[in-house]
Design a binder for these strands. Structure first.
Lengths: 195, 195
DNA sequence: GTTCAGTTATATCGCTCCGATACATCGGGC
DNA sequence: GCCCGATGTATCGGAGCGATATAACTGAAC
């Protein structure tokens, strides 16, 4: 079975197209998932080590860069996917379980949608949507029940939180609509190499 | 100096008005900060222990509930603020540094606004606002620079993140406006009896 | 009236993550 | 020549989380 945590998945995804070393992985991930979700070295390097141990990636002493000049390049360790890593990635990309629409995992899964087939994309979006509407009900339930007992600021915080989730749902509805209308037109294939 | 972490502050705040035991603390916190921000026991109990060690709270073997019926209530440990804890709380409530408008801290600080004086409220809101607009610029900068090199889904994720932050800023602007217009009318006092 | 599920309640273990920090090297500007 | 900011690898301590164990009470089904 081997469960794949979010960080591992994100790294598998980012190494899909080229080998990179730690520093680059961090920058790319930061750029793709937004400047929030910082990802510190304190998580990155241990995770890379775990992945090497698990045989998902391979470390190599950086030959990659051009003809270049003679001698002592600084220590750089480029990581690339092994076959096991590549098949783990596609296995993971084909799945659409609860772990795909959790708060922290959804962004990563979404950022890999270009390599996910249309049916799975739709299932993930719908799963995320239903997860959020559960939450919606919880919160608005709570809001009604707290008439007294809470001051204006706390209530405002709740109201604002509710609104945020509502907008998130609207966003998902738009995306789902798009996916649905794209279906039927084209072949529904896996989108793959656009850049 | 003694830095107070977010969780500690939240607990100080929730114990301000009555002693509670662990389970209740968790429920209240969950209700006040929204059902997100779960707070697991694995964080709560260690934190309570730290706070007892630091002399901020006191454990007592639960006499609190009514006349009640005779004998063996199950083990329940009620925690209440010590004088040190109470003064730490008001000290913390009077401050408005960067730690008040960090992502994770802001919600907690905001939920305690009813016990924060008007000037500090305003400073915190403004601090949070400027933190978010920094981020705004970063992200939109990044969005412009990534024309190529990113697929449609990744771009959409960025766009959506940007929009969220924009709305957060609008929300803050509304709150700041309210605070400003309330000033001048009333006495600007601290909304409550600080000891 | 007994069983069974759910809530109240405290507590710990292992693991991961983060922030801070320590190194070293590179490319440029002054 | 010299410092500064980016590039790059790495670790440490502390804090949080998810899962889990334990146990007593509550109430409804049967």
């Amino acid at each position: 079975m081997a469960k794949t945590d979010v960080l591992t998945l994100a790294i598998l995804g980012i190494l899909r197209d080229q080998p990179l070393h730690g520093y680059q992985i961090r920058k790319r991930l930061g750029a793709e998932l937004g400047p929030f979700r910082a990802l510190s070295y304190g998580s990155l390097y241990p995770c890379l080590r775990r992945m090497v141990e698990a045989g998902l990636i391979e470390a190599s002493g950086d030959e990659a860069n051009g003809p270049s000049h003679a001698s002592s390049r600084r220590a750089r360790i480029a990581y690339s996917l092994t076959d096991a890593g590549r098949s783990r990635l596609s296995e993971e990309l084909a799945s659409a379980g609860a772990s795909s629409w959790d708060d922290d995992a959804f962004d990563v899964r979404f950022s890999l949608f270009a390599h996910t087939d249309a049916a799975t994309r739709l299932r993930i979006l719908e799963g995320r949507r239903s997860r959020l509407s559960e939450r919606l009900e919880e919160v608005s339930e709570g809001l009604k029940r707290m008439h007294e007992r809470h001051d204006a600021y706390t209530a405002e915080l709740q109201r604002h939180g509710l609104e945020q989730v509502e907008r998130e749902v609207e966003w998902l509805d738009r995306l789902i609509e798009n996916e649905r209308s794209a279906r039927g037109g084209e072949n529904n294939g896996s989108a793959s190499a656009d850049h």
